[in-house]
Design a protein around this nucleic acid. Sequence first.
DNA 1: GCCATGATGACAGCAAACTGTCAGATTGAC
DNA 2: GTCAATCTGACAGTTTGCTGTCATCATGGC
Lengths: 172, 172
Amino acid sequence: MGSASLPGDPDRSRRAVSGLVIEVFRLKGDLIEAGDALVHDLGLTSARWQVLGAVALAPAPLPVAHIARNMGLARQSVQRVVDDMRADGLVRLEPNPHHRRAPLVAMTSRGEAAYKQAMARKDLWVDGLTAGLPPEAIEAAGTLLRALQQRIGASHDRIAAIATSTRREIQE
Amino acid sequence: MGSASLPGDPDRSRRAVSGLVIEVFRLKGDLIEAGDALVHDLGLTSARWQVLGAVALAPAPLPVAHIARNMGLARQSVQRVVDDMRADGLVRLEPNPHHRRAPLVAMTSRGEAAYKQAMARKDLWVDGLTAGLPPEAIEAAGTLLRALQQRIGASHDRIAAIATSTRREIQE
DNA sequence: GCCATGATGACAGCAAACTGTCAGATTGAC
DNA sequence: GTCAATCTGACAGTTTGCTGTCATCATGGC
């Protein structure tokens, strides 16, 4: 593998991506942890909060499968969270006039109160986190992550090709 | 809550952070998925690969609890992955002269071969992902995520204060 | 030397994502 | 109108992280 074979110095990009990936993993864990701590006493978790957010942002009540598609998750993951929140009185299932077996998820008044509290706390917390950071830098980071994510999504064929073409004997 | 009360336009930062958080969650999922696909036929997963990386980068063999601390994970998560890899002959436990109950994790030759293959594939894949992206932008994104992570780590007290001070009656 | 304290691994169980399979409900092609 | 394909929720099981508890071992104050 030669050096300086590409215009952009591949080693520099490789190192930058390695660091970025580590940060993404750590940050994801820290965000879940902080989110849980921020809303724990409201009867919420990060997962519940995200589902309530999808319900709140939708222009009309949605069935579980719809919510899952909007969030990019599997149907069953959202189903379990919704079941748990229903048992806790945070959401309620309303009959769906268009589909007898797909009830619509709606927040109870307790669910709405908890969600509003959670969002208010989030804003307070985020304002403290970003104080002194230029918004442009935050936006630029988001843009880069989005670009990376799109490239990863488009790289499935390349992954398969790399795995096939670099296959060596690993067996004992 | 006033508008334009802070120099940096809090709404703009809030929106940027919201987008960034969504990207971090999505990217984490995509990275795990892509990593699994990239090394699946080597008997590795993303989790195994990360543990092997921690072993490979350490200047000397480490016990499981040390590896977990380095990775920012719980001891038991790493323990289970190590147990699985030991059953598959990718790592081996060596006696620890300093601690009878904390054996040192070392790669077997099969483990080393698999790890080298994984790293070579990762480089090929990453080179394709970053082609055309300025390395400065990747580095800047990493720097911002790192700054955010440090601020989150320092915000535990503030989270508790926010939760306490904004507590309202949510009960039915 | 003795014993509290902490580090470590083993084990059990929880959380939140996944996949697979199934039956009932809806929808669209014909 | 009928029937195949699709959508949906229910249920079971897997993965990969977590927490909590326990017994054992190491270390350091005394």
